[in-house]
């Protein structure tokens, strides 16, 4: 047991299940997902589109579209409180104040017809009851903190006048405005160039050092996870298939899905024009999920009927390294 193991988690998700009602029937977007984030940690959630990464983030913020999306099972404990029991007003207090969120596409997260200054100072006047002048001054400080040059002039500009990287900085400034203890970053760099991505990741890491907040980083880029995260959690078709300390998971991935995912990325130091490992087929539709090993039907490994119909246990194979123990997919 190291020190960090004894600290109680800041956020703890236990057996979270989310169902969506659609025209074609009900689907289960998350199936008993468990996850925890310790103070000052960065936890990465990685997976392909449709695996439930964003749904996890939106469930924590209680921002699932209603009435289609509903949490059917589980608890989300934030600093010991179950967020699912809070009233709408109490939850509104937590959002922004205690948990900040950075959205994927900064253009869609900002109001296009309001100036940056107004949108940003609104955070202070709503959450911290600042008067207008004070909110304005604090907003300028915040913009400077995220590295926007000539912040005072930027306050009078509209989102479309800023570049993609600058807009993302504004969104980060908004998320960090009230010094939240947890930041949920939903694909914060996907829409950006690699060079700008490097800037934003650097910024997030520096801000984390200064404020000591925890970050839940959602991305499909394993490279980003490897560079920034302490813990990683691999999701597939609504379930967590593997989670643990980033170094361990990357060094010895146990689940076949994690292995295949890592194998399918072209590497800078790899051989040019060599064939890449691929995962055949696509992520299964949520309508045709089996109860057992969900990667089984796609993995080109022979599974028995029983393995496909009975949910494998989620086992701790070494300290802090958990894996969904399907006997076929976790063979070494």
């Amino acid at each position: 047991m190291t020190e960090i193991d004894q600290i109680s988690p800041l956020l703890e998700i236990r057996d979270l299940s989310v169902r969506f009602k659609t025209d074609e029937g009900e689907v289960e977007a998350l199936d008993k997902v468990s996850l925890e984030i310790k103070p000052c940690q960065t936890v990465g959630v990685v997976g392909e589109s449709g695996c439930g990464k964003s749904v996890t983030a939106y469930s924590i913020m209680r921002l699932l579209p209603r009435p289609m999306g509903m949490i059917s099972n589980g608890r989300i404990l934030f600093q010991g409180k179950n967020l699912l029991d809070l009233s709408t007003e109490e939850m509104r207090d937590i959002r922004g104040n205690e948990i900040g969120m950075i959205f994927q596409e900064p253009m869609n997260a900002l109001n296009p017809v309001q100036k940056i200054g107004k949108q940003l100072s609104e955070v202070f006047s709503l959450h911290q009851q600042d008067d207008n002048h004070q909110a304005w001054l604090r907003s300028i400080d915040m913009l400077e903190a995220v590295g926007i040059p000539s912040a005072e002039n930027r306050m009078h500009e509209y989102p479309h006048q800023l570049s993609g990287g600058m807009r993302q900085r504004v969104v980060i400034a908004m998320a960090l405005a009230c010094k939240p203890s947890l930041i949920i970053a939903d694909e914060p760099t996907t829409a950006l160039d690699v060079t700008v991505q490097a800037q934003i990741l650097d910024l997030l890491q520096n801000l984390q050092k200064e404020t000591g907040c925890s970050i839940l980083l959602i991305t499909h880029d394993l490279g980003v996870i490897a560079e920034t995260c302490d813990q990683v959690c691999v999701m597939y078709a609504g379930r967590v298939v593997e989670k643990g300390v980033a170094e361990k998971v990357f060094a010895s991935p146990q689940h076949a899905y994690t292995q295949d995912l890592l194998g399918s990325i072209p590497r800078l130091d790899g051989h040019s024009k060599a064939r890449l490992k691929t995962i055949e087929g696509i992520v299964p539709s949520l309508f045709e999920l089996n109860e057992g090993c969900r990667f089984g039907p796609r993995s080109c490994r022979d599974h028995t009927e029983e393995q496909l119909s009975q949910r494998p246990d989620f086992k701790e194979i070494s300290s802090g390294h958990w894996v969904e123990a399907c006997p076929v997919c976790t063979q070494t």
Binding site: T195, G223, C229, R267
Partner: peptide
């Protein structure tokens, strides 16, 4: 140097 390498080591 800006490309993230999928290897934390």
């Amino acid at each position: 140097s800006a490309i993230p390498v999928p290897d934390p080591s």
